[in-house]
């Protein structure tokens, strides 16, 4: 495989990937911001391919979610608040208009 081919293959794998941003020094009871970037197109002309839903969860329990239309930007970049009560795994799950889905996760550590 050519260098470009290898690079393309590597980059292609990133589509649908979720990058999660969390504060590094969260304190118990503090309201923190959770950010998620999803690498995904948003085609609005025929409403054929866009992200419809994004759900945020702590240890598997959803605490908020977005319903999105084709008028949401490509590569949705979302931020939501969370009252930090405990350490746990933060995850963001997405599903698009063609039924494909994906998720990303990152551990939230709360200082005692």
């Amino acid at each position: 495989m050519s260098v470009l081919g290898t690079l393309g293959s590597r980059l292609t794998r990133r589509l649908g990937e979720v990058q999660i941003g969390l504060p590094e020094n969260a304190k118990r009871g503090e309201i923190i911001e959770i950010r998620a970037l999803i690498l995904h197109p948003s085609q609005s002309e025929d409403k054929t391919l866009f992200i419809e839903e994004v759900a945020f969860a702590l240890d598997g329990k959803t605490f908020c979610h977005f319903d999105l239309s084709s008028m949401s930007s490509a590569n949705p970049y979302l931020a939501v608040p969370l009252r930090a009560e405990k350490s746990g795994m933060i995850s963001a799950h997405w599903r698009n208009s063609q039924g494909q889905a994906g998720s990303g996760q990152k551990f939230l550590r709360i200082a005692e």
Binding site: I31, C64, S69, M71, P76
Partner: peptide
């Protein structure tokens, strides 16, 4: 463009997004 469903666990009613 969007509907954000939040809950008391959020602690605050707020959100950020990018729209067309």
């Amino acid at each position: 463009a969007s509907i954000f469903h939040c809950s008391p666990a959020n602690g605050k009613a707020a959100c950020y997004q990018r729209v067309k």
